[in-house]
Design a binder for these strands. Structure first.
Lengths: 146, 146
DNA sequence: CCAATTTAAGTTGTGCACAATTGAATTGTG
DNA sequence: CACAATTCAATTGTGCACAACTTAAATTGG
Protein backbone atom coordinates (compact mmCIF):
# COMPACT_ATOMS: atom_id res chain seq x y z
CA UNK A 1 0.00 0.00 0.00
CA UNK A 2 2.84 2.39 0.85
CA UNK A 3 4.18 2.62 -2.69
CA UNK A 4 0.70 3.18 -4.08
CA UNK A 5 0.32 6.12 -1.73
CA UNK A 6 3.48 7.69 -3.00
CA UNK A 7 1.94 7.22 -6.44
CA UNK A 8 -1.14 9.09 -5.23
CA UNK A 9 1.07 11.98 -4.19
CA UNK A 10 2.95 12.07 -7.45
CA UNK A 11 -0.28 11.83 -9.43
CA UNK A 12 -1.59 14.76 -7.40
CA UNK A 13 1.56 16.76 -7.99
CA UNK A 14 1.42 16.06 -11.74
CA UNK A 15 -2.29 16.80 -12.09
CA UNK A 16 -1.98 20.01 -10.13
CA UNK A 17 0.89 21.24 -12.28
CA UNK A 18 -0.96 20.27 -15.47
CA UNK A 19 -4.03 22.27 -14.43
CA UNK A 20 -1.95 25.25 -13.40
CA UNK A 21 -0.27 25.19 -16.81
CA UNK A 22 -3.69 25.06 -18.50
CA UNK A 23 -4.86 28.09 -16.52
CA UNK A 24 -1.60 29.92 -17.23
CA UNK A 25 -2.20 29.47 -20.91
CA UNK A 26 -5.82 30.62 -20.77
CA UNK A 27 -4.83 33.61 -18.63
CA UNK A 28 -1.77 34.54 -20.69
CA UNK A 29 -3.50 37.34 -22.66
CA UNK A 30 -4.10 39.14 -19.36
CA UNK A 31 -0.72 38.14 -17.88
CA UNK A 32 -2.47 36.70 -14.85
CA UNK A 33 -1.34 33.66 -12.86
CA UNK A 34 -3.64 30.95 -11.51
CA UNK A 35 -3.25 32.22 -7.96
CA UNK A 36 -4.01 35.78 -9.04
CA UNK A 37 -7.12 34.42 -10.81
CA UNK A 38 -8.21 32.69 -7.60
CA UNK A 39 -8.00 36.00 -5.74
CA UNK A 40 -10.11 37.66 -8.43
CA UNK A 41 -12.72 34.88 -8.22
CA UNK A 42 -13.03 35.50 -4.47
CA UNK A 43 -13.44 39.24 -4.97
CA UNK A 44 -15.97 38.80 -7.78
CA UNK A 45 -18.15 36.53 -5.68
CA UNK A 46 -17.69 38.08 -2.27
CA UNK A 47 -16.71 41.70 -2.83
CA UNK A 48 -14.25 43.61 -0.67
CA UNK A 49 -12.26 41.40 1.66
CA UNK A 50 -9.34 41.85 4.07
CA UNK A 51 -6.06 40.15 3.19
CA UNK A 52 -6.45 37.78 6.11
CA UNK A 53 -9.78 36.41 4.86
CA UNK A 54 -8.42 35.88 1.36
CA UNK A 55 -5.58 33.99 2.98
CA UNK A 56 -7.98 31.82 4.94
CA UNK A 57 -9.93 30.82 1.85
CA UNK A 58 -6.85 30.02 -0.24
CA UNK A 59 -4.73 28.84 2.70
CA UNK A 60 -2.00 31.33 1.80
CA UNK A 61 -0.08 33.56 4.15
CA UNK A 62 0.90 37.19 3.74
CA UNK A 63 4.31 36.13 2.52
CA UNK A 64 2.61 34.89 -0.63
CA UNK A 65 -0.30 37.30 -0.76
CA UNK A 66 1.44 40.63 -0.14
CA UNK A 67 3.60 40.60 -3.29
CA UNK A 68 0.81 38.94 -5.33
CA UNK A 69 -1.68 41.66 -4.33
CA UNK A 70 0.91 44.32 -5.08
CA UNK A 71 1.19 42.94 -8.62
CA UNK A 72 -2.59 42.91 -9.01
CA UNK A 73 -2.61 46.49 -7.77
CA UNK A 74 0.14 47.47 -10.22
CA UNK A 75 -2.09 46.09 -12.98
CA UNK A 76 -4.91 48.21 -11.54
CA UNK A 77 -7.32 45.31 -11.07
CA UNK A 78 -7.57 45.85 -7.31
CA UNK A 79 -6.93 48.49 -4.67
CA UNK A 80 -5.72 48.03 -1.09
CA UNK A 81 -6.81 50.32 1.70
CA UNK A 82 -6.07 50.28 5.41
CA UNK A 83 -9.22 49.65 7.39
CA UNK A 84 -10.55 52.75 9.16
CA UNK A 85 -11.68 50.86 12.27
CA UNK A 86 -8.62 48.63 12.60
CA UNK A 87 -5.57 49.92 10.84
CA UNK A 88 -3.74 46.60 11.07
CA UNK A 89 -6.21 45.31 8.46
CA UNK A 90 -5.81 45.94 4.73
CA UNK A 91 -9.03 45.68 2.70
CA UNK A 92 -8.79 44.51 -0.89
CA UNK A 93 -11.40 45.57 -3.43
CA UNK A 94 -11.88 45.50 -7.19
CA UNK A 95 -11.34 48.48 -9.45
CA UNK A 96 -13.65 48.97 -12.42
CA UNK A 97 -11.21 47.10 -14.67
CA UNK A 98 -11.07 44.38 -12.05
CA UNK A 99 -14.86 44.07 -12.21
CA UNK A 100 -14.74 44.16 -16.01
CA UNK A 101 -12.41 41.15 -16.03
CA UNK A 102 -15.21 38.95 -14.78
CA UNK A 103 -16.86 39.18 -18.18
CA UNK A 104 -13.61 39.02 -20.10
CA UNK A 105 -12.68 35.79 -18.34
CA UNK A 106 -16.15 34.26 -18.34
CA UNK A 107 -15.10 31.72 -20.96
CA UNK A 108 -12.47 30.13 -18.70
CA UNK A 109 -14.61 27.89 -16.48
CA UNK A 110 -16.07 26.13 -19.53
CA UNK A 111 -12.63 25.63 -21.07
CA UNK A 112 -11.42 24.13 -17.82
CA UNK A 113 -14.52 21.97 -17.56
CA UNK A 114 -13.56 20.50 -20.90
CA UNK A 115 -9.94 20.24 -19.78
CA UNK A 116 -10.62 18.05 -16.77
CA UNK A 117 -11.71 15.24 -19.10
CA UNK A 118 -14.09 14.01 -16.42
CA UNK A 119 -17.07 12.18 -17.89
CA UNK A 120 -19.83 13.74 -15.81
CA UNK A 121 -20.82 15.76 -12.76
CA UNK A 122 -20.85 12.64 -10.64
CA UNK A 123 -17.23 11.82 -11.45
CA UNK A 124 -16.20 15.39 -10.71
CA UNK A 125 -17.95 15.37 -7.34
CA UNK A 126 -16.43 12.03 -6.43
CA UNK A 127 -12.96 13.36 -7.26
CA UNK A 128 -13.53 16.53 -5.23
CA UNK A 129 -14.67 14.47 -2.26
CA UNK A 130 -11.67 12.20 -2.50
CA UNK A 131 -9.30 15.18 -2.77
CA UNK A 132 -10.87 16.88 0.24
CA UNK A 133 -10.31 13.74 2.25
CA UNK A 134 -6.65 13.66 1.25
CA UNK A 135 -6.20 17.38 2.02
CA UNK A 136 -7.75 17.10 5.47
CA UNK A 137 -5.89 13.96 6.32
CA UNK A 138 -2.55 15.37 5.15
CA UNK A 139 -3.12 18.52 7.19
CA UNK A 140 -3.60 16.33 10.24
CA UNK A 141 -0.21 14.65 9.91
CA UNK A 142 1.32 18.07 9.27
CA UNK A 143 2.28 20.61 11.91
CA UNK A 144 -0.07 21.15 14.88
CA UNK A 145 -3.35 22.88 13.93
CA UNK A 146 -3.06 25.74 11.41
CA UNK B 1 -20.62 21.88 -14.55
CA UNK B 2 -18.14 24.68 -15.22
CA UNK B 3 -18.03 25.86 -11.61
CA UNK B 4 -17.62 22.31 -10.35
CA UNK B 5 -14.59 21.94 -12.59
CA UNK B 6 -12.98 25.01 -11.12
CA UNK B 7 -13.64 23.33 -7.77
CA UNK B 8 -11.82 20.25 -9.03
CA UNK B 9 -8.82 22.42 -9.87
CA UNK B 10 -8.81 24.16 -6.54
CA UNK B 11 -9.22 20.84 -4.70
CA UNK B 12 -6.26 19.53 -6.66
CA UNK B 13 -4.19 22.59 -5.87
CA UNK B 14 -5.04 22.33 -2.16
CA UNK B 15 -4.43 18.60 -1.93
CA UNK B 16 -1.14 18.88 -3.76
CA UNK B 17 0.10 21.62 -1.46
CA UNK B 18 -1.05 19.69 1.62
CA UNK B 19 0.87 16.59 0.55
CA UNK B 20 3.97 18.62 -0.30
CA UNK B 21 3.82 20.17 3.18
CA UNK B 22 3.52 16.71 4.73
CA UNK B 23 6.59 15.50 2.84
CA UNK B 24 8.47 18.68 3.73
CA UNK B 25 7.87 17.97 7.37
CA UNK B 26 8.91 14.32 7.15
CA UNK B 27 12.01 15.31 5.16
CA UNK B 28 12.95 18.24 7.37
CA UNK B 29 15.61 16.36 9.38
CA UNK B 30 17.52 15.83 6.12
CA UNK B 31 16.69 19.28 4.74
CA UNK B 32 15.32 17.69 1.59
CA UNK B 33 12.41 18.98 -0.47
CA UNK B 34 9.68 16.84 -2.02
CA UNK B 35 11.11 17.29 -5.50
CA UNK B 36 14.60 16.37 -4.31
CA UNK B 37 13.07 13.27 -2.70
CA UNK B 38 11.44 12.34 -6.02
CA UNK B 39 14.83 12.50 -7.74
CA UNK B 40 16.31 10.26 -5.06
CA UNK B 41 13.45 7.75 -5.49
CA UNK B 42 14.22 7.55 -9.19
CA UNK B 43 17.93 7.00 -8.56
CA UNK B 44 17.27 4.39 -5.86
CA UNK B 45 15.03 2.36 -8.13
CA UNK B 46 16.73 2.87 -11.47
CA UNK B 47 20.35 3.71 -10.73
CA UNK B 48 22.43 6.16 -12.71
CA UNK B 49 20.39 8.33 -15.06
CA UNK B 50 21.04 11.28 -17.35
CA UNK B 51 19.40 14.59 -16.42
CA UNK B 52 17.15 14.39 -19.45
CA UNK B 53 15.61 11.08 -18.37
CA UNK B 54 14.98 12.33 -14.85
CA UNK B 55 13.27 15.29 -16.45
CA UNK B 56 11.10 13.03 -18.58
CA UNK B 57 9.91 11.02 -15.60
CA UNK B 58 9.13 14.04 -13.44
CA UNK B 59 8.15 16.31 -16.32
CA UNK B 60 10.66 18.92 -15.23
CA UNK B 61 13.06 20.85 -17.44
CA UNK B 62 16.70 21.69 -16.85
CA UNK B 63 15.68 25.10 -15.54
CA UNK B 64 14.26 23.31 -12.51
CA UNK B 65 16.59 20.31 -12.39
CA UNK B 66 19.98 21.98 -12.80
CA UNK B 67 19.89 24.01 -9.59
CA UNK B 68 18.07 21.22 -7.73
CA UNK B 69 20.75 18.67 -8.70
CA UNK B 70 23.43 21.15 -7.75
CA UNK B 71 21.93 21.35 -4.27
CA UNK B 72 21.76 17.56 -4.00
CA UNK B 73 25.39 17.46 -5.10
CA UNK B 74 26.33 20.11 -2.51
CA UNK B 75 24.77 17.82 0.11
CA UNK B 76 26.86 15.00 -1.36
CA UNK B 77 23.92 12.70 -2.02
CA UNK B 78 24.61 12.55 -5.77
CA UNK B 79 27.38 13.22 -8.26
CA UNK B 80 27.09 14.54 -11.80
CA UNK B 81 29.47 13.44 -14.53
CA UNK B 82 29.62 14.29 -18.21
CA UNK B 83 28.96 11.23 -20.34
CA UNK B 84 32.07 9.85 -22.03
CA UNK B 85 30.27 8.89 -25.25
CA UNK B 86 28.16 12.03 -25.58
CA UNK B 87 29.50 14.96 -23.65
CA UNK B 88 26.26 16.92 -23.94
CA UNK B 89 24.80 14.43 -21.48
CA UNK B 90 25.28 14.66 -17.72
CA UNK B 91 24.81 11.41 -15.81
CA UNK B 92 23.50 11.59 -12.26
CA UNK B 93 24.37 8.86 -9.78
CA UNK B 94 24.14 8.27 -6.05
CA UNK B 95 27.04 8.63 -3.66
CA UNK B 96 27.31 6.21 -0.75
CA UNK B 97 25.45 8.65 1.52
CA UNK B 98 22.84 8.93 -1.22
CA UNK B 99 22.41 5.16 -1.17
CA UNK B 100 22.35 5.16 2.61
CA UNK B 101 19.43 7.58 2.59
CA UNK B 102 17.19 4.89 1.15
CA UNK B 103 17.21 3.12 4.49
CA UNK B 104 17.09 6.30 6.53
CA UNK B 105 13.95 7.40 4.68
CA UNK B 106 12.33 3.98 4.49
CA UNK B 107 9.71 5.02 7.03
CA UNK B 108 8.30 7.77 4.82
CA UNK B 109 6.08 5.78 2.42
CA UNK B 110 4.16 4.28 5.34
CA UNK B 111 3.70 7.67 6.98
CA UNK B 112 2.37 9.04 3.71
CA UNK B 113 0.14 6.00 3.25
CA UNK B 114 -1.43 6.89 6.57
CA UNK B 115 -1.55 10.54 5.57
CA UNK B 116 -3.64 10.06 2.45
CA UNK B 117 -6.56 8.99 4.61
CA UNK B 118 -7.73 6.73 1.80
CA UNK B 119 -9.72 3.75 3.09
CA UNK B 120 -8.15 1.02 0.94
CA UNK B 121 -6.05 0.09 -2.04
CA UNK B 122 -9.06 0.23 -4.31
CA UNK B 123 -9.82 3.84 -3.39
CA UNK B 124 -6.18 4.81 -3.94
CA UNK B 125 -6.11 3.18 -7.35
CA UNK B 126 -9.37 4.83 -8.36
CA UNK B 127 -7.99 8.21 -7.33
CA UNK B 128 -4.75 7.63 -9.25
CA UNK B 129 -6.73 6.67 -12.34
CA UNK B 130 -8.90 9.74 -12.08
CA UNK B 131 -5.89 12.01 -11.60
CA UNK B 132 -4.11 10.49 -14.59
CA UNK B 133 -7.15 11.23 -16.71
CA UNK B 134 -7.16 14.86 -15.55
CA UNK B 135 -3.42 15.22 -16.16
CA UNK B 136 -3.59 13.83 -19.68
CA UNK B 137 -6.63 15.82 -20.56
CA UNK B 138 -5.18 19.06 -19.21
CA UNK B 139 -1.98 18.47 -21.14
CA UNK B 140 -4.06 18.18 -24.29
CA UNK B 141 -5.66 21.59 -23.90
CA UNK B 142 -2.23 23.00 -23.05
CA UNK B 143 0.42 23.95 -25.55
CA UNK B 144 0.98 21.67 -28.57
CA UNK B 145 2.51 18.29 -27.68
CA UNK B 146 5.44 18.40 -25.23
C1' DC C 1 33.40 17.53 -45.49
C1' DC C 2 31.10 21.01 -43.49
C1' DA C 3 27.05 24.15 -42.79
C1' DA C 4 22.58 23.92 -40.74
C1' DT C 5 19.80 21.75 -37.48
C1' DT C 6 18.93 19.42 -33.35
C1' DT C 7 19.84 18.07 -28.67
C1' DA C 8 21.42 18.53 -23.73
C1' DA C 9 22.33 21.15 -19.90
C1' DG C 10 22.85 25.39 -17.82
C1' DT C 11 21.60 30.43 -16.93
C1' DT C 12 18.53 34.28 -16.19
C1' DG C 13 14.43 36.25 -14.75
C1' DT C 14 9.51 36.08 -12.88
C1' DG C 15 6.26 34.48 -9.69
C1' DC C 16 4.46 31.34 -6.20
C1' DA C 17 4.91 28.69 -1.51
C1' DC C 18 6.43 28.93 2.79
C1' DA C 19 9.35 29.73 7.06
C1' DA C 20 11.00 33.21 9.96
C1' DT C 21 11.19 37.78 11.34
C1' DT C 22 9.69 42.65 11.85
C1' DG C 23 6.80 46.44 13.03
C1' DA C 24 2.74 48.55 14.01
C1' DA C 25 -1.86 48.36 16.03
C1' DT C 26 -5.09 46.29 19.01
C1' DT C 27 -6.71 43.58 22.84
C1' DG C 28 -6.60 41.54 27.33
C1' DT C 29 -5.41 41.60 32.11
C1' DG C 30 -3.71 42.98 36.28
C1' DC D 1 -4.20 53.03 33.18
C1' DA D 2 -0.06 50.18 31.89
C1' DC D 3 1.99 46.73 29.64
C1' DA D 4 2.20 42.03 28.05
C1' DA D 5 0.32 39.19 24.57
C1' DT D 6 -1.86 38.83 20.27
C1' DT D 7 -3.04 40.04 15.57
C1' DC D 8 -2.26 41.62 10.87
C1' DA D 9 0.43 42.73 7.03
C1' DA D 10 4.80 43.23 5.09
C1' DT D 11 9.62 41.84 4.40
C1' DT D 12 13.49 38.66 3.78
C1' DG D 13 15.35 34.55 2.25
C1' DT D 14 15.14 29.74 0.14
C1' DG D 15 13.61 26.66 -3.27
C1' DC D 16 10.55 25.09 -6.97
C1' DA D 17 8.11 25.82 -11.74
C1' DC D 18 8.58 27.53 -15.95
C1' DA D 19 9.65 30.56 -20.03
C1' DA D 20 13.25 32.32 -22.76
C1' DC D 21 17.78 32.27 -23.92
C1' DT D 22 22.75 30.61 -24.21
C1' DT D 23 26.41 27.44 -25.06
C1' DA D 24 28.42 23.42 -26.46
C1' DA D 25 28.23 19.08 -28.71
C1' DA D 26 26.38 15.85 -31.83
C1' DT D 27 23.72 14.74 -35.95
C1' DT D 28 22.12 15.48 -40.60
C1' DG D 29 22.05 16.31 -45.21
C1' DG D 30 23.77 18.34 -49.13
Amino acid sequence: MAIVDEMVCFALYSASRATTRAYTELLAPWKLTYTQYLVLVILWTEGEKPVREIGEVLQLDSGTLSPLLRRLEDKEFIVRQRDVQDSRVVNVSLTSSGHALQNDLAHIPAQIACGTGLPDLKAAQALIKSLHRVTESMQEISSPDK
